[in-house]
Amino acid sequence: MKLKLKIWRQKNRNSKGKFEIYDLDNVSEEMTFLEMLDYLNSKLILEDKEPVAFDSDCREGICGMCGLYINGRTHGPEKEVTTCQLSMKAFKDRSTITVEPWRSKAFPVIKDLVVDRTSFDQLIQAGGYISADTGAAPEANSIIIKKETVDRAFDAGICIGCGACVATCKNASAMLFVGSKVTQLALLPQGKAEATIRAISMVAKMDELGFGNCTNTGACEAECPKGISISNIAKLNREYLYAKIQD
């Protein structure tokens, strides 16, 4: 394959970035998208040019480190994959591919395609946990939980924290990220004691960090590589309303 790549280049946090165009020949459709970028980088390095910085780690869709905005879509055109799982088969020969970093006030660009997602850590710090000190736990089977409930908690808990929901949302809202964590922990009996305070603190932190408001477009659900449902956002709204009524 022969490709034209239009890639966002930015030196560091404070500099103004711009797009650069790269022509890349001999791309195999067997490559993943990131292997294609690896290939581009190896060429750039040997041509004494600066390689493109991008994040990735596990390369099997579970660590959540990778994430690029490819041709106007988070993690590219395929459904329920991360960028590292995206195959070059999804692209046509001689096409132009535009690659941008996640764009959000809460995810500032550090370099090229790398963004700072510590705001997600801050959201979890605000209450995305169950306060069970080491050693304080009761016997695991003393807590009986319906299979259906645990399965729903699991479905909410499979979030990989990649940030695609924020990146794709027209409002850069983090409601799906927060909603899935609040839902997972509120469904489980172990997490119920803190459900109220958790919902309130996490939403307050979300607002403080500059994420936008949810307008229920459903884009996050459609683009989430793990297919996490916006019913988790409804649950968050419910938990929050209930928490505030009690407050």
Partner: peptide, 21 residues
């Protein structure tokens, strides 16, 4: 203790229909 600890911290370990692990 590890299983107890993880369960208490919200790990959704698979359950039987009875609700037991």
């Amino acid at each position: 203790s590890v299983i107890d600890q993880f369960t208490a911290q919200g790990v959704p370990f698979a359950r039987e229909y009875s609700g037991y692990l």
